[in-house]
């Protein structure tokens, strides 16, 4: 509970100086470094056994069985660059706990490799650039500077926010079922 609450606080205002919120899990997707506040992360599992779901947009890789719960897996590369990620030896699924409108949902995100947990203090974080990062600035909460490199700190509720995703998913589904109807 407290984990979620503090995460919400964190995403509400990036300045929150709560203990522990300065830690970020960093990982790479399509050769870019990203970071997510560790409080939102439930676990990291090896990539595998993803069952595909028909009529889903490309960035929904499928679903996995996470100890009896069915969890959707989002392909970040497809989400950001419209290029499906190649599953490699170091591919992982990061399970993120989303809390939206009172309901909790676990979502998996497919990443090329997980790097480390880093401490990035607020003064090392710069506001998102208007352009140039290669992904929508909405998704970015800030640019963390680590050893002279930039880490894109994701606003995970924006990236995975079901509101946004649903807008993308719903038309695909509708189109698919209509296509069959009209093609028949």
């Amino acid at each position: 509970m407290t984990v979620k609450d503090s995460h919400q606080l964190q995403s509400a205002s990036a300045d929150t100086d709560d203990e522990g919120t300065n830690q970020y899990l960093t990982f790479s997707v399509a050769e870019q470094m990203f970071g997510i506040g560790i409080l939102a992360i439930k676990e990291i599992i090896q990539y595998g056994a993803v069952s595909s779901v028909p009529m889903m947009p490309d960035f929904i890789r499928g679903v996995i069985n996470l100890r009896g719960a069915v969890v959707p897996v989002v392909d970040l590369s497809a989400r950001f660059h419209r290029r499906q990620a190649e599953a490699g030896r170091r591919s992982c699924i990061v399970i993120v706990e989303m809390c939206e409108e009172g309901s909790i949902q676990d979502v998996g995100i497919l990443v090329d490799s997980v790097s480390a947990v880093l401490e990035i203090t607020p003064d090392e974080i710069e506001p998102p650039p208007a352009f140039g990062a290669g992904i929508k600035s909405d998704f970015i909460r800030g640019m963390g500077k680590v050893d002279g490199r930039f880490v894109i700190l994701l606003d995970i509720s924006r990236v995975l926010g079901t509101e946004g995703l649903i807008e993308l998913v719903a038309p695909v589904v509708a189109a698919a079922s209509n296509k069959t109807v009209s093609s028949g």
Partner: peptide, 11 residues
């Protein structure tokens, strides 16, 4: 199905 996939409902 969860919120994200709930929009597959119907099929």
């Amino acid at each position: 199905l969860g919120r994200l996939l709930d929009h597959l409902r119907g099929l």
